[in-house]
Amino acid sequence: MTRNKFEFESNYRLLESKLAELRDLSVTLNCDFSNEIAKVEKRIAELKAERYRHLTPWEQVLMSRDLERPMTRDFVELLCTDFVEMHGDRLYGDDPAIVGGIAVFEGRVVTVIGHQKGKDTKENIVHNFGMPRPEGYRKAFRLLKQAEKFSRPVITFINTPGADPGVGAEERGEAWAISQLLLGLSQLQVPVISVITGEGGSGGALALTVADRILMFSNAVFSVASPETCASILLRDVKRADEMAAALKLNAVSLKDMGIIDEIIEEPVMEPLLSSQSFTQSLRYSLKKHLDEICGTEIPDLLEMRYQRLRKIGRFHEIQ
């Protein structure tokens, strides 16, 4: 990626600029260092890539929130054809923080539902920064029931700071809308696959992540609460969010260890996700592979497995 996202980048910038100086000087003084300079250049690029491969959990949180990351509509455009977007919950309104509809993926008609943030502040006001209101959850629920009626598998894309924390959302039963999705997805009579593509923020993200398979991008996060919230409640100091990001074990590697997600899709280093062919290919391949597997399973078996994968989550001590 091009612009400075992290403080550590300035170190590499400094090295690069010193190297440029050396290159200029070598031309002025008529000494040929081009081989040596190319070597150092390569080494700097390697070090930088290496650093990007080892982002701290807090850096991953920032990365996951990057508005340059593709959102649901981008993934639909990349992976599917014949997308028809559906709007509204048939109860109150349409929520632009969640988009959904039908499309064709690898020859299969699927229902696609996911969070949608804006690419800039103006767009983000329309999309409410990707924070769904009850209408969004109820629209999702309606589209899931529609998928069930037509035996269409469901793909969800997760990227939200969380459910909308507003007065209106409370008045219209946000908690009720989320709980109905959790129960509804756990019993939905079609295969469901979720992809956590960015910020997996608390219950607002979980509401669309009850699935037969959960894939996760390597710099995406999924957390019980934002590191800032944890820091302000538990440490009474929001500036220590980076400590909480590490303590919460919210990245893909930790969640795979916990058995919460199934597969990590490696993100390219220093390259926009959708510009990287190896990334888009592995996303497409993994989605297809898992979808083929779950679509080949009898629905009662699938529902039993979906139940059991949730049922076994939790760590505790027991004495008889």
């Binding site: 756990s186 979980l206 999924f222 957390s223 019980v224 609460a225 944890c230 979906r306 949730l310 760590r315």
Partner: peptide, 19 residues
Amino acid sequence: ARMQEGMLSLMQMAKTSAA
């Protein structure tokens, strides 16, 4: 959800709802 158990806590929402 109990923050100190991270995602293990959040997933209890889905687990109890499924039950």
